[in-house]
Simulated assay, not measured.
Amino acid sequence: MSVHEPGTPGETATVVAATDVRRTYHLGEPVHALDGVSLSLEEGSFTAVMGPSGSGKSTLMNLFGCLDTPDEGTVEIDGRSVTALSGSDRARLRGTEIGFVFQTFNLMPRLTAAENVTMPMVFHDVVDEDRRARARTLLERVGLGDRLDHAPSELSGGQRQRVAIARALANEPTLLLADEPTGNLDTETGAEIMDLFRELHDDGRTILMVTHERAIAEHADRIVHLVDGTLDEIEEVRGSKAASGRDRSGSEGSE
């Protein structure tokens, strides 16, 4: 599947759209994680989602990532409704169209960096030599061309996250989802990872990122604020931190 072409010149394709989605968990008593949220991501957009604990951030990401389905409402990817897909069809969609970057890296400890990156390629009919070549290209892209045969235990936290980003890009996904991608990193390393996300966005990637850090969220084009399972505000940022000349602490830089 690929993102459909816009219908008219200048029109932007919608990559994923949630319409009036509701998701309730029954944990002794009902917990309304999402209560009528509608949100769409346009091709090439970079959206950050913020909100207090329990606001529905992770639930929304799980719906967009086909890890869960709503109780009510619809989720469409590339104009195709995925709400009624079988579990196996959703799994294939996840493997071919969606790349995931997690806070805890989720790398296989017994595999090398290159082997971790090739894992998602099982969803495609790619011979081993081509998988290895693509893994090398992606690891070079994230600055780890000299770490192909290193195990995760031989890499720093920032390097592990770079491997995770390379793995997320293995199948040229339509959508890149990042769940607190700097949460386990120090401030300097986290800033380097966000610089990489900005480069991916500049290359045309569509990114949805969950974060609780304002400084991290400001790398996105817009910030979606969730409160108690509802969409409270959509704040247009348009990469203000990168575009305004401010440094990573938020103060104004000199010209």
Results as ranks from 00 to 15, higher is better:
35 D>H: 12
33 A>K: 08
70 P>T: 01
93 L>F: 10
47 T>F: 10
80 R>I: 08
65 G>L: 02
86 S>C: 12
67 L>Q: 14
61 M>H: 11
117 V>L: 06
90 R>L: 11
51 G>K: 09
98 I>V: 06
27 L>Q: 15
53 S>G: 15
46 F>T: 04
62 N>R: 14
34 L>W: 10
60 L>F: 11
64 F>I: 05
116 N>W: 03
91 A>S: 11
110 R>N: 01
94 R>T: 01
85 L>G: 11
64 F>A: 03
53 S>W: 11
43 E>T: 07
34 L>K: 08
54 G>F: 08
89 D>W: 12
115 E>W: 07
78 D>Q: 14
113 A>C: 05
42 E>K: 12
44 G>I: 00
124 H>S: 07
50 M>S: 05
53 S>E: 12
74 T>Q: 14
39 L>W: 15
107 L>V: 00
48 A>Y: 12
44 G>V: 01
71 D>N: 12
58 S>C: 06
103 Q>R: 04
59 T>N: 14
103 Q>C: 01
38 S>N: 15
28 G>Q: 06
35 D>T: 09
54 G>M: 08
48 A>L: 11
98 I>M: 01
26 H>V: 08
104 T>M: 03
75 V>S: 12
26 H>T: 08
97 E>F: 02
105 F>D: 00
102 F>E: 00
73 G>W: 10
31 V>I: 11
119 M>H: 05
108 M>H: 06
107 L>Y: 03
86 S>F: 13
35 D>P: 10
124 H>T: 02
98 I>W: 03
84 A>I: 09
108 M>L: 03
62 N>W: 13
51 G>W: 09
121 M>L: 08
101 V>F: 00
79 G>Q: 13
96 T>N: 04
80 R>Y: 13
55 S>E: 03
48 A>E: 09
116 N>Q: 02
91 A>K: 08
74 T>M: 12
100 F>Y: 02
116 N>C: 01
35 D>Y: 11
72 E>I: 04
122 V>S: 07
41 L>K: 12
22 R>I: 10
91 A>Q: 08
111 L>C: 02
23 R>C: 05
121 M>Q: 09
72 E>F: 09
42 E>D: 07
58 S>W: 09
58 S>Y: 11
106 N>G: 02
117 V>M: 03
110 R>E: 01
74 T>W: 14
30 P>Q: 05
36 G>K: 05
81 S>I: 08
102 F>C: 00
102 F>W: 02
37 V>S: 13
65 G>F: 07
122 V>P: 04
67 L>H: 15
30 P>E: 06
25 Y>F: 15
68 D>N: 13
94 R>Y: 06
51 G>A: 10
58 S>Q: 10
123 F>D: 00
121 M>I: 04
97 E>T: 02
86 S>Y: 14
32 H>M: 03
119 M>F: 05
76 E>G: 12
122 V>I: 04
124 H>M: 05
45 S>N: 11
59 T>Q: 15
110 R>S: 01
116 N>E: 00
29 E>W: 13
32 H>N: 05
40 S>M: 13
36 G>V: 03
76 E>Q: 15
47 T>P: 09
69 T>H: 15
95 G>T: 01
22 R>D: 10
